[in-house]
Amino acid sequence: MDVFVKPGGDVPPLWYYGHDDHDQIATKTFGFWLYMLSDALIFAGLFAAYAVLDQPMNMAGGPTAAQIVHPVAAFWQTMAVMTSVLAYSLATVALKTGNKAGVLLGMIVAFVLGLAFIGLELNDFANLMAQGITPDRSGFLSAFFVLIASHGLHMVFGLLWMFVLMIQCLRSGFSQDIVSRLLNLRMFWQFQASVWVCVYVFIYLRGAA
């Protein structure tokens, strides 16, 4: 069954799917969990590299963390990404009852807030580079830029994924494959928010202390 259409309705709630359909979605979700674990290892390595390079000997006479991080500005990024996760979570709540408009509205809000996060991050990078603070100045700055940019690239990928899913929901409704992708994207989006909280605490708050 490719597309699930509830008799007399437009989009079925999740309970409309059969047992086999639930098993297939669960299997795909488990596979995505394995990918997420590998992604977590990548970020763990990046955090470890940053911790090692965040030492005076690795700054080559350049700026320290306290001179480049701005916790207040980064707080607005934190609010944007956390609110985006909340909006997407509400979209998946609407998915349980087959509320297509609710799903799309939640995804649109999540998408806009995700774009705001990326815009704030790019603005921060632009300001640093305008001051001559670039990754090639020191090992510390290389670790700083790579860690934050890696997270930003994950966010961009998530936004592209979300945009494609919005189009698919509009065109095809909630097929088994689309429901699986929606649930996996929720997991991916929540993971990126968790990583950003670690970035905010470990880099911005710790650096400014």
Score class of each variant (00 low, 15 high):
residue 31 G to M: 13
residue 132 G to L: 07
residue 160 L to Y: 07
residue 16 Y to W: 13
residue 193 A to L: 11
residue 113 L to Y: 10
residue 125 F to G: 01
residue 9 G to D: 12
residue 127 N to R: 15
residue 112 V to W: 10
residue 46 L to N: 08
residue 54 D to C: 04
residue 45 G to H: 14
residue 141 L to K: 06
residue 143 A to N: 06
residue 160 L to N: 13
residue 4 F to T: 04
residue 193 A to D: 14
residue 2 D to Y: 02
residue 48 A to C: 09
residue 22 H to A: 09
residue 35 Y to C: 04
residue 101 A to G: 01
residue 153 L to H: 01
residue 18 G to H: 02
residue 139 G to H: 05
residue 131 Q to L: 06
residue 133 I to G: 00
residue 155 M to E: 01
residue 141 L to D: 07
residue 85 V to F: 10
residue 6 K to Q: 12
residue 147 L to H: 12
residue 124 D to H: 12
residue 110 A to I: 11
residue 122 L to A: 08
residue 203 I to E: 02
residue 21 D to T: 14
residue 71 P to Y: 00
residue 123 N to L: 10
residue 138 S to C: 10
residue 150 S to N: 03
residue 93 V to S: 12
residue 122 L to E: 06
residue 42 I to V: 15
residue 169 C to P: 01
residue 126 A to N: 15
residue 89 S to Q: 12
residue 98 G to H: 07
residue 24 Q to D: 12
residue 49 A to E: 13
residue 17 Y to T: 03
residue 133 I to V: 09
residue 179 V to C: 08
residue 55 Q to E: 15
residue 173 G to E: 06
residue 167 I to R: 08
residue 57 M to W: 10
residue 73 A to L: 07
residue 187 M to D: 09
residue 148 I to Y: 06
residue 10 D to G: 08
residue 97 T to N: 05
residue 78 T to K: 15
residue 122 L to R: 07
residue 32 F to L: 09
residue 31 G to D: 12
residue 150 S to Q: 05
residue 118 I to M: 03
residue 131 Q to D: 12
residue 179 V to H: 04
residue 126 A to V: 14
residue 163 F to M: 02
residue 18 G to S: 03
residue 27 T to Y: 03
residue 202 F to Y: 08
residue 82 M to F: 10
residue 118 I to V: 06
residue 182 L to S: 07
residue 60 A to K: 07
residue 90 L to A: 05
residue 41 L to F: 13
residue 54 D to G: 03
residue 134 T to N: 04
residue 23 D to S: 05
residue 15 W to G: 03
residue 41 L to K: 13
residue 32 F to N: 15
residue 66 A to R: 08
residue 39 D to A: 09
residue 105 L to P: 01
residue 76 W to N: 05
residue 69 V to L: 00
residue 173 G to D: 00
residue 79 M to V: 12
residue 207 G to Q: 05
residue 196 W to R: 11
residue 107 M to H: 09
residue 198 C to E: 09
residue 208 A to T: 01
residue 188 F to I: 00
residue 67 Q to A: 12
residue 202 F to T: 11
residue 57 M to S: 15
residue 126 A to M: 14
residue 169 C to G: 05
residue 200 Y to T: 11
residue 46 L to A: 13
residue 154 H to W: 03
residue 22 H to E: 01
residue 103 V to S: 01
residue 190 Q to D: 06
